[in-house]
Amino acid sequence: MFSKSNLLATLVAGVVMFFLGYLIWGIATADFFEEHSLVNVMKEVPNLGLIALGNIVGAFVLSSLYSKWARGHHSLGEGFQFGALIGAFVGISMGLIWYATANWMDMTGHIAEAVIDILYYGIVGAIIALVYQKTASKK
């Protein structure tokens, strides 16, 4: 669980999650989601320290799950597939539950969020797989 591969993948994936998340949700889609939000729940000034910590914790969990899922077979494709499955869980499964229980976004916003989550976590999974691939012990 605290192997060199896992810790390095956690660090790299955490940094990627932080900056890619900012590019996606903070810049590229901010106006889109503002149009499809039903209520404004955003803080005026987000706590970047907690966002970074959340990304590191998330990256550690994803990296730990990936190491068990991959069973030593590391490739970008496998990593993307792993991450896309996580993204489908978050974006589709949880998105439907949020849509059914809260007035956060309209259905268009949730559909877009699901697609973005699948791609975002797919990229993160591919990064994790790449780190595992590069740090795997040579046999």
Rank of each mutant, 00 (worst) to 15 (best):
G87V: 06
S93N: 06
F33G: 02
R71T: 09
S37Q: 03
A28N: 02
G14Y: 00
Y121P: 00
Y22A: 12
W25E: 06
I127V: 15
W69E: 05
M17W: 01
V61Q: 08
G109T: 13
I86C: 11
V12R: 04
W25V: 05
F82W: 10
A28P: 00
S67R: 06
L65G: 04
H36C: 13
V115H: 01
S5E: 15
T10N: 02
I127K: 12
L130A: 08
V12M: 06
A30S: 04
V15A: 12
D106F: 14
S67G: 10
S37K: 06
G109F: 01
L96K: 08
L38G: 11
K68V: 04
S75N: 14
K138H: 13
H36E: 04
P46C: 06
G91Y: 03
I86V: 14
V39S: 08
F33Q: 02
T135P: 01
L8Y: 02
E35A: 15
A70R: 14
K139G: 12
A70H: 12
K139Q: 12
L96P: 03
M105K: 12
A84T: 07
Y66I: 00
K138D: 11
D117F: 13
S3A: 05
G109C: 12
V131M: 02
G83Y: 05
G91Q: 05
V12W: 05
A59I: 04
N6A: 01
E78H: 13
L11D: 01
V124C: 14
G95S: 05
D117S: 14
H36S: 08
Y22Q: 13
F33R: 05
G26I: 00
H36Q: 09
A30I: 05
G58L: 10
S5M: 08
I128V: 10
S137N: 06
G14A: 09
S3T: 15
L130D: 00
G14R: 01
V124T: 06
A30K: 03
H36K: 11
S63N: 08
L85S: 09
A70Q: 11
W25L: 13
V131H: 01
K138N: 11
I123K: 10
H110R: 08
S75Y: 10
T29N: 00
L23D: 07
Q81C: 09
L65N: 03
V39R: 06
G91M: 10
S67M: 09
L53V: 04
F80C: 08
F2R: 07
N47Q: 07
A102E: 10
I127L: 09
S93C: 08
G83S: 09
V57K: 11
F60G: 01
A100Y: 06
Y121E: 12
E34R: 15
N6L: 03
F60P: 01
A9K: 00
I111E: 02
K4S: 13
V115W: 01
G54S: 10
Y66F: 14
L23A: 12
T135W: 04
A59S: 12
V39Y: 04
Q81I: 09
G21I: 09
Y121H: 13
A70C: 15
K138E: 13
E78C: 03
I116H: 00
T135Y: 04
G91T: 10
V124F: 14
L50I: 00
G109I: 15
T135M: 07
V12Y: 03
Y22H: 12
N47F: 05
K43W: 03
Q133F: 03
L7Y: 03
E34D: 04
M1K: 05
N40I: 11
K139E: 14
A136Q: 12
